[in-house]
């Protein structure tokens, strides 16, 4: 299993910089916001955590529909489906490697964007931590969409539409926790812990659903 993780990491490093594109997309989305709402620093610092979360959400879903596509195109997916080891585990590993290679860079890039949005240190730290904890859930939910996309001739956009409504809870609690860290009366821990719970819940449901879809997608 560790071999699969290493192989997928190697592939994403060698094959055309998917992580770089994701980070660029993330930065571009966040960078166009001030042009829309105006350069008012107070306003930007107020909406900053939400904007960064939304940007990260979109960027995380950007490359996700390809999660199983390349393995299907060259036939590797067939061999993975045949094995004795549970497919759920294979899917989980693929999600983790996707997260490490493509989503973790977004989390690392988020403080820089926080500076652009005139957020203070606490807010930047809170956004980074909530992203770190919440973004794996995005990968797990997206895996279901990616598994569905395998069967579609032109899947990409449809998958994002299918997956986005399911990510709303992650967004709500991620942003709530980020704001709670800055604004005084709201406690930080409850939304943060719920975010952790959501991630753990999806780490089970996501791979299960994706494995089920992959098994049923054979043609």
């Amino acid at each position: 299993m560790i071999d699969l993780l290493l192989r997928d990491l190697k592939l994403s490093v060698r094959a055309g910089g998917g992580a770089l594109i994701g980070v660029l997309f993330f930065m571009t989305v966040v960078a166009v916001i001030p042009f829309g709402v105006g350069p008012d620093l107070n306003l930007l610092s107020r909406i900053g955590p939400a904007i960064i979360w939304i940007g990260a959400l979109l960027a995380a879903l950007l490359g996700l529909d390809r999660l199983f596509q390349t393995d299907r195109d060259d036939g590797s997916l067939d061999l993975m489906l045949m094995q004795e080891q549970p497919l759920v585990l294979t899917v989980l590993i693929k999600c983790l490697s996707h997260w490490l290679a493509n989503i973790l860079p977004l989390v690392i890039a988020s403080p820089l964007l926080g500076l652009f949005m005139n957020m203070n240190e606490v807010a930047i730290g809170a956004v980074m931590i909530t992203l770190l904890v919440g973004s794996p859930a995005l990968a797990f939910i997206g895996a279901v969409g990616a598994a569905v996309a395998v069967t579609l001739p032109r899947g990409g956009l449809l998958v994002s539409i299918l997956v986005l409504p399911l990510t709303i809870p992650v967004l709500i609690f991620g942003v709530s926790a980020s704001y709670a860290a800055v604004e005084d009366p709201a406690p930080f821990l409850p939304p943060f812990l719920i975010l952790v719970a959501i991630t753990m819940f999806f780490s089970v449901i996501g791979p299960l659903g994706a494995a089920l879809a992959l098994r049923n997608a054979g043609d």
Binding site: A147, V148, T151, L166, I168, P169, I172, P191, I205, N216
Partner: peptide
């Protein structure tokens, strides 16, 4: 039949999610 099976997976994933979405929207 393939469409039915794949969308069935999606329906079930959505079904599991609906309570979570409801809960989080209430919180929000």
């Amino acid at each position: 039949s393939k469409a039915a099976r794949v969308s069935a997976v999606l329906i079930l994933i959505g079904f599991v999610n609906i309570p979570i979405i409801k809960f989080s929207v209430d919180w929000w």
